[in-house]
Structures are given as structure tokens and as C-alpha cells.
Amino acid sequence: MALLEVKDLKVRVEEREILHGLTLTVNEGEVHAIMGPNGSGKSTLSHVIAGKPGYEVTDGEILFRGEDLLEMSPDERAAKGVFLAFQYPVEIPGVTTMNFLRTALNAQRKARGESELMVPDFLKKVREVSKSLNIPQDMLKRGVNVGFSGGEKKRNEVLQMALFEPSLCILDEMDSGLDIDALRIAADGVNALRSPGRAMVVITHYQRLLNYIVPDVVHVMSRGRVVKSGGKELALELEASGYAQFEDAA
């Protein structure tokens, strides 16, 4: 069974159809890249998978390990192992990162019928992962993402990914707003999480990110559909020729 199956998905936002019948299958252990021009519906797809309100699914389905994802609330999806790394992680003043991480992890464990993680085990794990991501300990005591740089915010997303151990990671424009050094640290963090049991969907406008996170499959999206799929060489081809050919094709 595929980990994620998106079948003929049609989605509207405020009466306007954004996805016009999108189909995508992702198996465990695979890394898929979704590329496409602005407005092609890449972020809409990621939001609908995560359960963000404001999107109306008019047709099609999304199955996660065969279960209907669209019937689940966002927190249920998270507990099942769906993780969206936000393009623009929000700032939450007054909620320390540490408190947030512990509350979220325990909420997921509770939903799965697991016991809460003991505090020493949790702290040890946070320390290990944050060290590998070059996240200073004092950042964890501050409000979630408050005063963080763009790179720090993205690293904080990767930190959560490492702690929550989801089986599907969707990275929405992870490279936006990052310089090359920040991008490398975040991408190293993501690569360390690649495993046979975990799939990733990397959404990006530019080929640059795929030099660091090398995909197994590349999809080109245009006007709300996947118009071409191929190996990693497809990304290079796009870099050379641009998206215009696909816009015409769609």
C-alpha cells in the first residue's frame, strides 16, 4: 500500500478552483520533489494535506496508508504521522519553544495511545537534535519562533520533524528566505532524517534546494495539475529551460 495517494483532487478557495484533478502517489522511503511556477497550486496541495481551513475539496480523495485523510482533523493527521514544515513558520509569543515541543509531542503520543515521554528522556532528545541542527539552548527558552531569523525558523521546523518522527514530511518552500549556509544546515538536518520508513515531499520553486536534498522523483506542477514526472534529471532540465513549456502544455 502506498503511504500517500492523492487521487484526482479538486480544490477550491473562495469559489476559485486551484487544483483541477491532481494525482500523486508517494511510497515509504521515497523523496519526491514538486516543482512549479508561482500560482501552480504547490502550497495549496501541502495545506490541504495538512488540513488547513479555508480550502474546499470538491472532488477526489487523499489516502494515508489507505485511510481517508480528509476525514481527519489536523491534529489527528499529525498524530498519524503527517508533518508539514511551514513556508512561513508563525511566531507564538508567550509559549516557550520547549513547552510547545513537549506539549505537542505528548499530545501526539496521547492520541496514539502511547504514554507521555518522561521529562529527562525528552530533554536529552531535544538537546541532541538541537545540537546537531546548531540551535542554541537559549533559543528553546524563548517564545516559539519569536525573534528567530529566517534560518532559525526553518531549523526549528526540522527540529520538530526530528522529534515527532513523522512518516510523511512535506517541506513547503523550505529554501525561501535562506542564504546558502542556512540552507545547507537545514538540508543536512532533513537528509539525516531520510529513512526507509519515511517519505518526503519537497515543494520548491527552484532547483537549488534539490542539490542538497536529492529526490527520487520529480513532479512538475502547472495550473493545478501534475503535468510531468521523472527522475532527478528533470529538475536540471527545468533549470535550463524554465516552466514556460509546461504552462503551454497545461
Binding site: 495538512a50 482533523s73 499529525a78 511551514f86 507564538i92 505537542a104 499530545a107 520538530q160
Partner: peptide, 15 residues
């Protein structure tokens, strides 16, 4: 703030 609520829910916190 709806965007903050969604972020927390996407991380597993019930409403």
C-alpha cells in the same frame, strides 16, 4: 489568531 491555532493543530494539539 487562526494561523497560530492551525500551526499548533498541525503539530498535534487538539482544538
Amino acid at each position: 489568531d487562526e494561523s497560530l491555532l492551525f500551526y499548533l493543530k498541525a503539530r498535534g494539539l487538539p482544538e
